[in-house]
Amino acid sequence: MTNTRLKDLAARYLNKSVDTLAEEEQRVLRQIAEHRPTSRDAGAVAEEQATFGDRTADKVAAFGGSWTFIILFTVVLAGWMMLNSGALAWLGLSFDPYPFIFLNLILSTIAAIQAPIIMMSQNRQADKDRVAAGLDYEVNLRAEIEILRLHAKIDDVILARLDAMSAQQEALIAEVRALAAQPGSAPETRG
């Protein structure tokens, strides 16, 4: 695509110079000029931009917010408490007797690690939302420009038809005048 074409599209449909266009606007105009679709999958774009840490945070947050985690964690906690207050306490081998101070330390550590990971995942979701909003803007801009282009085409067709009709009308007027100018072809009047 030529830079001239991009300048023409920018001036005609956005009333801007190419230098002042945002990246999204330039991308939309290039896609129009190259007859390529504008819409893209926001999830796929976000995944392309994701780092290993981003994907890991998403997986940890997804597991930490699932019923599987809640049920598994409940079973582990109940087992820990029963083991330390029941069977191991009876044998005198409990390693974390009531009030389960070691268990509290483990739970605090898990919460301290899990909270920032969940926040990372939430930040990543906000980034995904921004990507989706940007892609929506591109699609909306493309739709608006295409509507403007269709209006221009329809206006051109209407103007061409009006020009043709005007030319036909002028030809008919010329014929009527030529006929009226011929001797003996005066219009008849009825009385």
Results as ranks from 00 to 15, higher is better:
Thr2Ile: 03
Thr2Met: 09
Asn3His: 12
Arg5Phe: 02
Asn15His: 13
Lys16Asn: 02
Lys16Pro: 00
Ser17Tyr: 14
Val18Phe: 04
Glu25Thr: 09
Gln26Val: 14
Gln26Lys: 05
Arg27His: 04
Arg27Ser: 00
Val28His: 10
Ile32Asn: 03
Ala33Gly: 08
Glu34Gln: 05
Pro37Lys: 08
Pro37Trp: 06
Ser39Tyr: 04
Val45Ala: 00
Glu47Pro: 00
Ala50Gln: 06
Asp54Lys: 06
Arg55Glu: 04
Ala62Thr: 12
Val75Thr: 06
Val76Arg: 09
Leu77Arg: 03
Gly79Leu: 09
Met82Ala: 07
Met82Ile: 14
Ser85Lys: 04
Ser85Met: 03
Ala87Glu: 12
Ala89Met: 12
Ala89Asp: 15
Ala89Gly: 06
Gly92Pro: 05
Tyr98Asn: 08
Pro99Val: 15
Leu103Ala: 11
Leu107Ala: 07
Ser108Met: 13
Ile113Trp: 05
Ala115His: 00
Met120Gln: 11
Met120Ile: 08
Met120Ala: 05
Ser121Val: 05
Gln125Glu: 13
Asp127Trp: 01
Asp129Gln: 13
Val131Met: 04
Leu135Met: 08
Tyr137Met: 00
Ala143Ile: 11
Ala143Tyr: 08
Glu144Asp: 07
Ile145Trp: 02
Arg149Gln: 13
Arg149Met: 10
Ala152Thr: 14
Lys153Glu: 11
Ala160Thr: 09
Ala160Val: 02
Leu162Ala: 09
Ala164Val: 03
Ser166Gly: 10
Ser166Leu: 07
Gln169Arg: 14
Ala171Phe: 01
Leu172Asp: 12
Leu172Ser: 09
Ala174Pro: 00
Val176Ala: 06
Pro183Lys: 01
Gly184Tyr: 03
Ala186Arg: 15
Arg190Thr: 14
Gly191Ala: 10
